[in-house]
């Protein structure tokens, strides 16, 4: 077992884990932050996307020990402590960008990374291209794309 410490959603956390523990397991099983999901085992689906030091990463392809001293944000860390939703979360609801909800946390975390890299004025083609690392089986992506376009704009307005 090995000790690991990091900041998750602004809180310092520690754990004692087997070195083979993936970040996603640490989040889900040790910290009980179950909003980060596992949808595949080959780094394809993006259900596990979190922000690692501000940058989107797949928590299923990252060891917990690689995150020693890092700062992690998960879907649970997006809304304000008072409960006000992040504009991107709000946009997914407003535009029906989710059905079963399983891919949704990863989609939202990925969407925020698209905004980080490309700004708030996104066109459909860019969004579709940049969603390459996220798979949704329910929505046909149509409303996810609309949600991200709108959420990005609303983030700028905020």
């Amino acid at each position: 077992m090995a000790a690991v410490s990091m900041t998750v959603n602004g809180k310092a956390v520690t754990g004692d884990v087997e070195p083979r523990t993936l970040l996603v397991q640490f989040l889900r099983e040790n910290l009980r932050l179950t909003g980060t999901h596992v949808g595949c085992d080959t780094s394809q689906c993006g259900a596990c996307i979190i922000h690692l030091d501000g940058i989107a990463a797949k928590a299923c392809t990252t060891l917990a020990l690689q995150c020693e001293g890092s700062s992690i944000t998960t879907i649970e860390g997006l809304a304000e402590p008072g409960g006000a939703l992040h504009p991107m979360q709000e946009a997914f609801r407003e535009h029906h960008g989710l059905q079963c909800g399983y891919c949704t946390p990863g989609m939202i975390m990925s969407a925020l990374d698209i905004v980080r890299r490309n700004g708030n004025d996104l066109d459909e083609h860019l969004i579709r291209d940049q969603l390459d690392g996220n798979i949704c089986r329910c929505t046909g992506y149509h409303n996810i794309v609309k949600a991200i376009e709108s959420g990005a704009k609303n983030m700028a307005a905020k």
Partner: peptide, 9 residues
């Protein structure tokens, strides 16, 4: 290469 998250890591 891969997708944005793969390129990030």
């Amino acid at each position: 290469i891969g997708d944005p998250q793969v390129r990030n890591r």
